[in-house]
């Protein structure tokens, strides 16, 4: 057995308490009142929306009721009804759920694809990088509106899931590009070489060593993307290329405002949905910014 003497106190363990990552993020959010309120709002909206859908039935709400067309807000219809006599409040809850689900789903799916593409091309570099980045370029060049319109026309059984998949096709590239540039930096660091000298395979180094070191960037990018995706979904639905009327979303509600009469005299149809889009996007963005600051020591406010 080896017996090494410790002559130097300097070499003793320095036991400093390190703050785990989520605690830093939490502190940053607590300190920044705007993002704290944003977080509370987002969480409240999510609880109401996902809780509400347990009680409310989508088919029930989108059923046409000819006796109560364009009813103003009342005790029966809290936010009035639309041209089909459908309850706006119910549609708002279901619509927010659909919009949020699409936003989250698109973010997760494009996150997975983007992470794999970005990590692989950054880590391997050279030829692999070239090929993967040309694929990314190809998807960037695609006229996305045009293709989404085509998909809407040809895909049968059009629902939240299929719409999310179609949107993912055009949303994964920014994450891939961002991660590629970071992975290029990381692979030059010596811990990657060191891990290889242990006999770790490339995949292991990529996903167990490099990816955790990029986790903050992944989380930040994906949070900010979430806000963007909710906006894009609403925009597409507004233009009529999103979800059909039978599956309401925030965008479909706002699109009723294309009728001048609705825009002028029936505010209850489009105003709540517009406000909700605004609030959701602002709040998610605020939380995202707080996380972003927390992960960069130079930007931290605490």
């Amino acid at each position: 057995m080896v017996n090494v003497q410790h002559k130097n106190l300097d070499d003793q363990a320095i036991t400093s308490e390190s703050t785990p990552g989520w605690k830093v993020v939490w502190r940053e959010i607590l300190y920044d009142k705007v993002s704290l309120i944003s977080l509370i709002l987002v969480v409240c909206i999510m609880i109401v929306v996902y809780g509400g859908t347990i009680v409310l039935e989508q088919d029930e709400i989108v059923r046409v009721d000819l006796f109560s067309i364009h009813a103003p807000p009342s005790s029966e219809f809290w936010l009035g009804t639309d041209y089909g006599g459908r309850d706006i409040f119910g549609q708002l809850i279901i619509g927010t759920r659909n919009s949020l689900s699409i936003g989250i789903l698109v973010t997760l799916l494009s996150g997975v694809v983007g992470i794999i593409f970005g990590l692989a091309s950054g880590y391997y570099g050279g030829f692999v990088d070239n090929v993967l980045m040309r694929i990314v370029d190809f998807f960037m060049f695609l006229p996305n509106l045009l293709i989404i319109i085509v998909f809407v026309a040809i895909v049968p059984d059009y629902s939240v899931i299929t719409f999310a998949l179609i949107m993912t096709i055009f949303q994964w590239m920014p994450i891939a590009r961002m991660l590629r540039s970071k992975a290029l930096q990381q692979r030059e660091l010596q811990y990657v070489e060191a891990s290889k000298t242990l006999g770790s395979s490339n995949l292991r180094v990529m996903f167990r060593e490099v990816m955790p070191n990029l986790s903050s960037i992944i989380i930040v990018t994906m949070t900010l993307q979430l806000a963007m995706n909710i906006g894009i979904e609403s925009g597409l639905s507004f233009l009529g290329f999103g979800l059909p009327e039978s599956t309401p979303s925030l965008g479909t509600l706002v699109s009723y405002a294309t009728n001048p009469a609705t825009l002028e005299s029936r505010w209850w149809i489009w105003l709540p949905a517009s406000l909700l889009i605004l609030i959701l996007m602002l709040c998610v963005n605020n939380v995202g910014q707080a996380i972003k600051r927390a992960t960069d020591a130079r930007q931290r406010r605490v």
């Binding site: 010596q190 060191a194 000298t197």
Partner: peptide
């Protein structure tokens, strides 16, 4: 090949690096 080398690296040949901070994964 890389994969057969991986069976030797770490097991039969060990390596010590110059900069110990850089050679350790900061998140592990």
């Amino acid at each position: 090949t890389e994969s057969s080398l991986n069976k030797i690296r770490g097991k039969e040949i060990g390596m010590i690096f110059q900069d110990p901070l850089a050679a350790l994964n900061p998140l592990m």
